[in-house]
Design a binder for these strands. Structure first.
Lengths: 340, 340
DNA sequence: TTGTAGGCGTTATCAA
DNA sequence: TTGATAACGCCTACAA
């Protein structure tokens, strides 16, 4: 029985009243008598009435939904952020619509447009690696869409952001390596045009400088993000006899590659060499040795971003400046750098 | 400048024609002259016109969106499935709205309702561990909502499903263990009321029976899903001197617990004992020893589910029976069971 | 080929 | 407190 879904008109007819009265009864409007309200609720339940959000949203101009744009859904970091977002938005009555860009600028532009066309109340996003300009985001802002960025943010945009304190993370890892007595410490960095990786690099530089340890350009390798890249770079270093005392990789995946390569060569951790990654991916505690890394509190990032966005949407902070929440990371020390 | 967004009426006014003509020009209707069509498109672009999907959907009764309900977004398996779904639905013009149930029946009921109220065209779902009855799903079906289930499905429902051939997976793992010469093989099962785990158990039984190996009730442990549960159960076995030759765990996480516990006791793999898991979680190739497991092709599951659902939505198979797609898993042999 | 008119289901405004 | 009316933006018979 594919019975047409009942509307407020059906409820109204049943009771011999008008749709507006039913609407008031259902929406918690107080300009209604307790008695009719009860009757309406009763009949609505009987008819299995379910509000049509589309109609409601069209009328009110609000969508009760929030868009999320991420590079990849099935990355541990991003799926945790999404989980965090959802844990805040859902209780607050918002649905989330998710788009993934696969790191493509073009997809990001399209995703944003799609979400806007669907009248989302706001958007939480992390830019893709290939996003070099932000005109599409600016355009959305011009249409007064609320946007909050997290993790990979655009410094030139005046909007709220939630970021990890990557500089601090990079600094703490490097200082830990220095404290462990490693002298010649290399850095396997990510794409430097992304702030998150640039900041980790800056943290590395800061710690090295503070310790009076010189960093020459052959000690920093850019664009080493994947396991394979970490592995190959390490192999090259080994073959040319240029292995350092320690390697701080800006990504757990490249650190894993480093680990794999060094194990092949029979090098022992943390004695002969120290290795640290970044992100505290689940696998880092399972490698042999366990990988020293940095926890980013991804779920909390999502929650904070959601709080910020909802506050903006609901006008709880009309004239307050956009703010940037800086989440402090935490150094996780394991056997790849520390003998216990 | 928070200029009101332009509508087809704005475009129409600009050109001195009516909104319906604009609508036709924009929607690819052929009852329109090439000339006006071009003019409309030009002005639409100038005014930065963007269709309001809400209005369009309300009018047409179709939402161009698909709901996804999963126990947890940030589980590797589910985020991969979602990624697979998204890779099919997005190019086809559907957005996905995601809800997570956190394994709670109550949340599942609410999620379903929310999606329906938002007029999704269909729903792809995997039931939560605590979902014991399916009346909420049946109710949605009665309202002629298209639903496709994946992985954790409800056998009593006559709808399309995408499942992993868990029986085959369990069978192949167990047969592999038998072929490796292990005699006394235990099974750490999941919650038996979930078909996926029950089937893996049946696969285990089938292989054991075929090989003429008796299975007594003290060889099968139910509800061992987490790392901690696997660890503690193994410790208990060890302390009572009851360790088997091999353990087939229905979950990679519990297998990991087994591995951890046995390593503590200094037991060697695969010689003294063999361990196998299920799901090919990313960490399984990183443990020491690498963990033998079963690949489920999660991303493909998502794609297949999306194809099925879209076919139903778009009426491409009006009177065809609901079908169940059985995805063949693949045994991944690693050092926890195999010396190379 | 284009315009007219009405409605999708809801809510907001006004009047009663 | 309730009803009548209109409108959110779009689409689609039907008429012209």
């Amino acid at each position: 029985m594919k019975s047409r879904k009942s509307t407020i008109h059906d409820v109204a007819e049943q009771l011999g009243i008008t749709a507006s009265t039913v609407s008031r009864a259902l929406s918690g409007n107080d300009r209604i008598s307790q008695k009719t309200k009860e009757k309406v609720l009763k009949v609505a339940a009987e008819l299995n009435y379910q509000p049509n959000r589309l109609a409601s949203n069209l009328r009110t101009g609000r969508g009760n939904s929030i868009g999320v744009v991420v590079p990849r859904i099935n990355r541990n970091f991003f799926s945790n952020v999404i989980s965090g977002i959802e844990s805040v938005t859902n209780p607050a009555g918002y649905n989330i619509m998710i788009c993934q860009t696969n790191e493509e600028h073009e997809n990001e532009v399209r995703s944003l447009q799609t979400l806007i066309n669907n009248q989302v109340d706001g958007i939480i996003m992390s830019v893709s690696a290939n996003t070099m300009n932000t005109s599409h985001i600016q355009k959305a802002l011009d249409e007064s869409i609320h946007i909050v960025q997290f993790d990979r943010v655009s410094n030139e945009l005046d909007i709220s952001k939630v970021v990890n304190d990557n500089l601090m993370g990079g600094y703490e890892v490097t200082r830990h390596l220095i404290e462990q007595g490693y002298k010649r410490i290399y850095h396997f960095a990510g794409p430097m045009h992304l702030g998150v990786y640039h900041d980790r690099y800056l943290g590395y530089m800061k710690a090295m400088n503070e310790a009076g340890m010189k960093v020459s350009s052959d000690m920093v390798f850019a664009d080493i993000l994947t396991r394979m890249q970490g592995l190959e770079t390490t192999q090259t270093l080994y073959k040319s006899g240029m292995l350092p005392d320690a390697i701080f990789a800006a990504s757990d995946f490249s650190a894993l590659g480093v680990l794999t390569a060094l194990k092949e060569f029979g090098i022992s951790f943390p004695k002969e060499i120290g290795v640290a990654g970044f992100a505290n991916e689940p696998f880092t505690e399972l490698t042999d040795p366990g990988l020293t890394t940095v926890e980013q509190f991804s779920e909390r990032m999502g929650q904070e971003a959601a709080y910020l966005l909802i506050a903006e949407i609901e006008g709880l902070k009309e004239d307050i400046e956009h703010q940037t929440i800086n989440i402090k990371p935490e150094l996780i020390i394991r056997q790849s750098t520390y003998e216990n």
